[in-house]
Amino acid sequence: MIRAPKCEMTLMVNGEKHSIVARQADTLLFVLRNYLGLTGSKPGCLNGDCGACTVLIDGTPIKSCMILAIETIGKSITTIEGLHDAPIQRAFVEQFAFQCGYCTPGFIMNAHALTEHRPDADDETIRKWLESNICRCTSYREIEQAVKSVLAEGQKQE
């Protein structure tokens, strides 16, 4: 009844199906980086604290160091490689919202979900969501401005 510790799993990442044989104990972050070569999601603390590994699972931001890859079978995973010129990516560039850039993929995934799900987010909501990520270069103000610029643009178009 106990299956082998390694098994075949098919994951849907950035709209493409990937079949791999991985350990059932492997985290999603490990599988994305080491089996699929998607190194945009960054390992930071590996402890749920920094948010550098954030990806979207069925549109919800999740820290990929704290979820097993096998848990995500049947779900849709989006990594930074799956975003193509999203408004938040452009806003990060325009607002200079990074220095070394290590935290950027995680921040962008979280901020992208925020702008998609909560187009009417107030300052308190923005603060709450962004608190999930740490930037060692302290680009916090510019990151917040990037989020606000995307939300303002969306509201203008309505």
Partner: peptide, 9 residues
């Protein structure tokens, strides 16, 4: 508890 993304889990 924790932070918003962690609370999704």
């Amino acid at each position: 508890v924790a932070d918003h993304t962690a609370r999704n889990q």
